[in-house]
Design a binder for these strands. Sequence first.
DNA 1: GCCGTTTTCGGCCCGACTGTTTTCAGTCG
Length: 579
Amino acid sequence: MSTNREAIRLFSELVQLTKLDEGSAQSFRVRAYEKALSALGELDRDVVDMTAGELAKLPGIGSSSANKIREIVDTGTLEKLEKLRVTYPAALVELTRIPGLGPKTILLLRDQLGVEDLDGLKAAIAGEEIRALPGMGARSEEKLARSIERLGMHGKDRRTPIAEALPIAEEIVAGLAGIDGVKHIEYCGSLRRFRETIGDIDVLVASTKPGKVSAAFVELPIVTEVVAQGETKSVVLVSGGLQVDLRVVPPASFGAAVLYFTGSKQHNIDLRQRAIARGWTLNEYGLTDVETEDVISSRTEKAIYAALDLPHIAPELREGIGEVAAAEAGELPRLVEESHIRGDLHVHSDWSGDGRATLEAMLDGAAARGLTYVAITDHAEGLAINGLSRDEMLRQRDVIDGMRFRYPDMTILHGAELNITPDGEVDWAADFLEGFDWGVASVHSHFDLDADTQTRRLIAAMENPGVNAIGHLSGRMIGRRPGIEFDVEAVLDAAERTGCAIEVNGHLARLDAAADVLRRARGRDISFVLDTDAHAVSDFRNVTWAVHQSRRGWVDKASVANTWPLEKFLRWVERKRKS
DNA sequence: GCCGTTTTCGGCCCGACTGTTTTCAGTCG
């Protein structure tokens, strides 16, 4: 799939340069390229194997883009792109990263002042040359200078891991919820869609006193800078440099506004086209009849979807990748809800070096969640710092046996989190593994082996009868460490063949397996387990994130083993362990 | 550049804020 990545890389550069060339980020050509780029990103086949004709059949890719993709595959480059690179050198393109500076202004600066790069721009500002340009003034010049100063902190392309963004959003929502005049409040945007990285936080408020809400918003203690403040829209920066947008709408429009600001952009466009086909228009205030100007629907998302003849589409699915068509055809997955989860199969205690709560505390926590079954899976000894030896594992088993009577309504499985070595072995041989009720095996080291080796490594672990599930499949830490590279199709084939489950790890820094991997498992006979990987009682909250992640991955409830009743679950566990 | 249950041509999502203007262009989401 490295060719797919190369095609994506060159195509996104084409998008960038075309924005400059057309003097607009919204020209039809730019939008067409963006659509083709997104189709390319969602492609689950290798472009090398596809003809231009096949590519052009994909929604969003026409004959022109198809030929460009073939040109990249066949020649390793793109003539059109080469030409654009001459006209718009990298140093000039860099300027597009400056917030508030768009293609029109960049071209103006180059034509009028000969600005070719960041240094040239700084010189023009220092010489007070900008303010002399048409449409510009002293304030534009100052604003530009400020944007450049904080460029490293929050350029347009900076994305924040969800683990950092989510607590900030929760703090802001909590800070505004009590303000006089706030009827409803919700964070929207990519955070509500549960993307793993967030560009900025969008907070939406329903209120009849927008001015009051905006004033309170910019005064929140977490705010470090006010970028813009209007009656219904304000923009601030918070500590850490993350941008937060606030929008205030009338209560009657809240549903339309939540829908609109949750996006994605492409999902909105798909819905709007549906509205237009019915003689209506859809914006953040409602679904409206174009002729009569009657509001058809605006209060809730569900009502708006219903008016458009669609079932409610969960926020996590709204990426504009075919969910509207699937909804219309009745082919959306039946999504998991937190209440469906009966078991947690990846739980640590302080018997592991990195566990932060006692076995009893963790079991109490699991029981408090109302779980029917739980697996204690402390690290095995292969993980030198954290792991338990064979003797310690046997001792823990005895301790757990002695505790079962305290939890009459919860079945406790004694498991282990096994460590997958570079060649796919795990810590112990079959005779010792047989003694466990459950095994989750994970990659904890050697992240940079080549893809073939990693693929063999994962598959070997899946084939091990003592391994019921692969934990955090890629081993990534979002924003800090990329996951291992592996052949997704081959690993999914192995999951289907061996019956080994794939974990959806709810740790916010992991969210592993990734959503695109999960989506590629659609239609296959693969089981999943949604786990917290809890190292402390508070980590049981990760179940929420595991559920969100599974929904982003279009995982069907029926394939999630820990939604099954105990007996069915145990039969499934045994089948694998006797394989 | 893409697309078709009115269309193979003529559309393409829509609105807020800023800073510049006296009605709008640029940027952003």
